[in-house]
Nucleic acid binder design. Sequence first.
DNA 1: TCCTAAGCGAGACGGTACGTCGTGTCTTCTG
DNA 2: CAGAAGACACGACGTACCGTCTCGCTTAGGA
Lengths: 208, 208, 208, 208
Amino acid sequence: MAETAARGRPRSETARRAVLDAALRLCQRDGYQALTIKGIAHAAGVGRQTVYRWWPTKEAVLLEALRDLVHRQGARLAPDTGDTLADVRTLLDTTFRLARELTGHALVGLMAQAQHDGQLSARLQGTVIGPRRAALRDVLARGVRRGELSDEEVPLDLAADFAFGTMWYRLISQHAPVDDDLAARLSLALWRLLSPGGPHQAERCAAP
Amino acid sequence: MAETAARGRPRSETARRAVLDAALRLCQRDGYQALTIKGIAHAAGVGRQTVYRWWPTKEAVLLEALRDLVHRQGARLAPDTGDTLADVRTLLDTTFRLARELTGHALVGLMAQAQHDGQLSARLQGTVIGPRRAALRDVLARGVRRGELSDEEVPLDLAADFAFGTMWYRLISQHAPVDDDLAARLSLALWRLLSPGGPHQAERCAAP
Amino acid sequence: MAETAARGRPRSETARRAVLDAALRLCQRDGYQALTIKGIAHAAGVGRQTVYRWWPTKEAVLLEALRDLVHRQGARLAPDTGDTLADVRTLLDTTFRLARELTGHALVGLMAQAQHDGQLSARLQGTVIGPRRAALRDVLARGVRRGELSDEEVPLDLAADFAFGTMWYRLISQHAPVDDDLAARLSLALWRLLSPGGPHQAERCAAP
Amino acid sequence: MAETAARGRPRSETARRAVLDAALRLCQRDGYQALTIKGIAHAAGVGRQTVYRWWPTKEAVLLEALRDLVHRQGARLAPDTGDTLADVRTLLDTTFRLARELTGHALVGLMAQAQHDGQLSARLQGTVIGPRRAALRDVLARGVRRGELSDEEVPLDLAADFAFGTMWYRLISQHAPVDDDLAARLSLALWRLLSPGGPHQAERCAAP
DNA sequence: TCCTAAGCGAGACGGTACGTCGTGTCTTCTG
DNA sequence: CAGAAGACACGACGTACCGTCTCGCTTAGGA
């Protein structure tokens, strides 16, 4: 195979992980604006140039930290248990917990930055936003195929907007928590919204 | 009354307006992160100290600019035309247009900053988020009072989260536009979601 | 007259003097190579930008420091006491003391830097080297006019090279001191070298 | 004999020469201050570590380069042709040419550095300054032994200072060239200065 | 009509993070 | 083992903006 021969000292995985961890930790502790390449390097016990060698901006550092986090979780985003409602709720639960506990500030900060950075925006889409969105769509589409749901009245994309939109809205506005209860309520509301015959059938499953 | 006698040169309204306008304009053009007190002052043709004299941070400048903008519009947020669906759509239309055209970047940036600034968060709630939210709730509550809608299955607060959540989600994620079509679709979806007897009645009004 | 109106906060003379003093002091203490804009600013209790605002390089700082020093001395370089030999010796004494005590390292460092910087070279000529050279030439020329000396055998310029060349040679090579004794010996040697009739007349004045 | 057995790959003479040549060339081209270990290694097509393995500083590199140069010339510094004046002139000529063409910038830079580095200063003395100085003294001393010159009025050391001091002075100050004409004038001036009976005898030999 | 006070523009002040570059050390593979 | 390649921790470079501080000049109300 055409693997380029590795020459010179190999990249330090230790330094890489120290930088990513420090970046997420500092961002969550002090906020996105206060996050600094200098601060990251210092907290990671790493030279400033080592950060610049591998990442062009603090956004790139955070993005890779998030991607690593997701990969490390390796979570099955859309398991098929046969119970569409439960699958939706599980997916939302998982997503909410991640956003709530680890990555909230980083994500909001990155999003703000992405307003004027098309490339960052695209990478956020591909790495974080898109997969979650696709997973929810898949789960809902399974419900449609089984005849439990219908996308005629309300397109599935709009339904996905509802779910994740509510999460983001609460993350940034902080007028209400992003917790398990929200996941439950959202699942039911989506069920009701997409019920083919009307909202009555949504009652087959009581709210907690 | 205990009015302090005005002494010395009075504050220049010209400078104040120049600062607020420049702040919004620069923020929308270059992004929140690139917005700078120095840049604002320069673009407004104003000394830097004049900005610092009246606003402690660039956040305060943007916040006042947004408040001024809303006041200047003086728009009736929740007019009662008797047609609940139309009122919802009008409210969303107005809100979307404002966010899309003028204040999107500023709002997202402020929200990101508010993640770690409780005071800013509270002021954003009171000035921007809260009133819109309350207005939508009012319109929906009128529908409930008229018997057109029901808040038994889905609470009105969650419905409001759906509407504005979708807006925010699309503003930051940019996977779909925030336009009139979205307002129409959202209005219908809310109607269907809150219909007392089921989604069938939502069909009284065809999508465009 | 067309003096431009001074606007804004006026330059701080305190900061200016602190920078110049710190530069000379640090250069003499740690050497030219170890001299750093950062170090100068720190030692002067001044922001780094304040140095960069007024001087483009550390060379410019040192040059102005030297010029200030010379101006502050305001010394009459070439006093005319009527005794040519004494005048020569006084001039060399003054020059040697200055170089030995305050400016030696700075001067040598600047000269090294001037090897590749024509502008710096020219300014050193005009500010430091040239005036001393001219002063010595003047004193010797007075001796020629009085008939005590002659420039027929050895041009006065070469004689000046002898005197200051020896100083520089010893400054950089450090094989022998640049002290009062050198000034005395040099004066006598110049006298002998330029004596019109021969070196015998130089004996009118005994060596110390 | 106690020669340590050479083990492993022997030192590459090619690399050594490449480093020394690159150092001298870069120093003369860009100046002493701009000379960099990294730059030397790159220009020599050599790894940085290879430089650090054999030389502690760029000064050491330059010093060895100069020493090599002198050895390669292998020039007889003080040939005895029987004509003292001619010998002086030859010595100065040789010295001036070397300084002018190849090593000027390196020498001045090293001298500046040696202001605060006693060890470097000593090595410069031993390698470059001292031998030339001693050679000139020897030639002059021969003249004294022959009765052509006298060191009673002016010590030979001071005469040597005159010659080399003038060279250095012109090298760093650049107010006049260091050329063959200077060698001729200097030789005559030294002759005159050291003439036992007076300057008249110096006229036995006309200036060019 | 001056006097006093405060706002205004301008811009220098002491700081700090930026992104780049060179330092001297280290760790890999190749010859 | 030497050598090339290059990553590592470190720190100075010169720039930009921070928030504060003086300046000279309005621009008002009160004497």
